[in-house]
Simulated scan of single mutants.
Amino acid sequence: MSNTANLNQDDPLDDFERRSITLDGVSKVVYVAGRGPAVIVMTEMPGISPHVARFSRWVRDAGFTVYMPSLFGRDGAVPQAEEGIATFRRACVSAEFRAFAANESSPVTQWLRALARLAHEQCGGPGVGAIGMCFTGNFALSMMLESSLLAPVVCQPSLPIDDPAGVNIAPEELAAVRERLEREDLTVMAYRFEGDKHCRAQRFAAFSDALGERFIARVLPDSAANPQSPPFFSQVVASPHSVVTAHLIDETGQPTLAARDEILAFFAQRLIG
């Protein structure tokens, strides 16, 4: 299951159907591909890069319909440093995100919950999966308030930016998520690199405290991160960070590839059976 697209060139995304989807009065572009139960892939900062698109294609090829919403940035662009910083700054002041607020959910998660409902209606099956990364890292947790979401994956959740132990979800929502996980015997898969400066051990500890053993954390050694990454990651992120995208090493036996395979198996277990 390899993807031969050149990750150093902008990705035209022309194997996805580009849809404009309006939910709750808000329209967003969503890239859709594949067949089978739905999985919502939420991009990391600074946007739908060739690496994020590669991950979505892996999900598609594993037997799912991918919904990849455009939440910020220039779709398909290789993450450059200056453009990435500008995108990051815009997102930080956007009303859709709560980049600095601990114990508060980002408003965009309401729209994403509606997208999960729509995707389930369109694709059928027992429910939908979702994965968030970096800026969107914890959004799959907030989306658990939508009953169709059965397979949440949290990758290097980086909000709130200035509170390493903070969680970007309201306490009553987090309590409701735990209650649902226990009631329906569900789990959350979570991934980070050990030395990630943007998603530290304190945040995973906070999620573990809140969700108990239903929060299944995987911490990869820094040595597992791809040393070759696009300029935004090498110059701005400047630490091991993106487990299944920019810092994944697409070679047999690599811990990042094992993480990808575990995520795909998790989706299959919950959504295909």
Rank of each mutant, 00 (worst) to 15 (best):
residue 1 M to S: 15
residue 2 S to E: 03
residue 4 T to I: 10
residue 5 A to H: 14
residue 11 D to E: 06
residue 13 L to C: 01
residue 15 D to R: 05
residue 17 E to R: 11
residue 20 S to V: 11
residue 21 I to Q: 15
residue 25 G to C: 15
residue 26 V to A: 08
residue 29 V to D: 15
residue 30 V to K: 05
residue 31 Y to S: 06
residue 36 G to F: 10
residue 36 G to R: 13
residue 42 M to P: 02
residue 44 E to D: 12
residue 51 H to P: 03
residue 53 A to Y: 07
residue 55 F to R: 05
residue 56 S to M: 08
residue 56 S to A: 15
residue 58 W to F: 06
residue 59 V to N: 03
residue 62 A to G: 12
residue 65 T to A: 12
residue 68 M to V: 03
residue 69 P to R: 13
residue 69 P to A: 10
residue 69 P to K: 14
residue 71 L to S: 12
residue 78 V to M: 03
residue 78 V to G: 01
residue 80 Q to D: 09
residue 80 Q to I: 01
residue 83 E to R: 15
residue 86 A to N: 09
residue 89 R to T: 14
residue 92 C to G: 04
residue 93 V to R: 14
residue 99 A to R: 00
residue 100 F to H: 04
residue 101 A to L: 06
residue 108 V to E: 08
residue 115 L to D: 08
residue 116 A to R: 01
residue 118 L to K: 13
residue 119 A to R: 08
residue 121 E to A: 15
residue 121 E to N: 01
residue 127 G to R: 05
residue 128 V to F: 01
residue 135 F to D: 09
residue 136 T to F: 12
residue 140 A to G: 08
residue 141 L to P: 08
residue 142 S to V: 05
residue 146 E to Q: 14
residue 149 L to T: 04
residue 150 L to M: 13
residue 153 V to E: 10
residue 155 C to W: 12
residue 159 L to K: 01
residue 160 P to H: 15
residue 161 I to F: 10
residue 165 A to H: 07
residue 173 E to A: 05
residue 174 L to A: 13
residue 179 E to T: 03
residue 180 R to G: 00
residue 189 M to P: 02
residue 192 R to T: 12
residue 195 G to L: 09
residue 198 H to S: 01
residue 201 A to F: 04
residue 202 Q to H: 02
residue 206 A to V: 07
residue 208 S to F: 03
residue 211 L to C: 03
residue 215 F to H: 02
residue 219 V to E: 09
residue 220 L to G: 13
residue 221 P to C: 15
residue 221 P to V: 14
residue 229 S to M: 03
residue 230 P to N: 10
residue 232 F to G: 02
residue 232 F to I: 03
residue 240 P to C: 13
residue 240 P to H: 12
residue 244 V to I: 13
residue 245 T to I: 02
residue 245 T to W: 08
residue 248 L to N: 02
residue 249 I to N: 05
residue 250 D to G: 09
residue 252 T to C: 01
residue 255 P to H: 04
residue 258 A to Y: 00
residue 261 D to C: 09
residue 261 D to V: 14
residue 264 L to F: 06
residue 267 F to P: 06
residue 268 A to R: 15
residue 268 A to K: 10
residue 272 I to M: 12
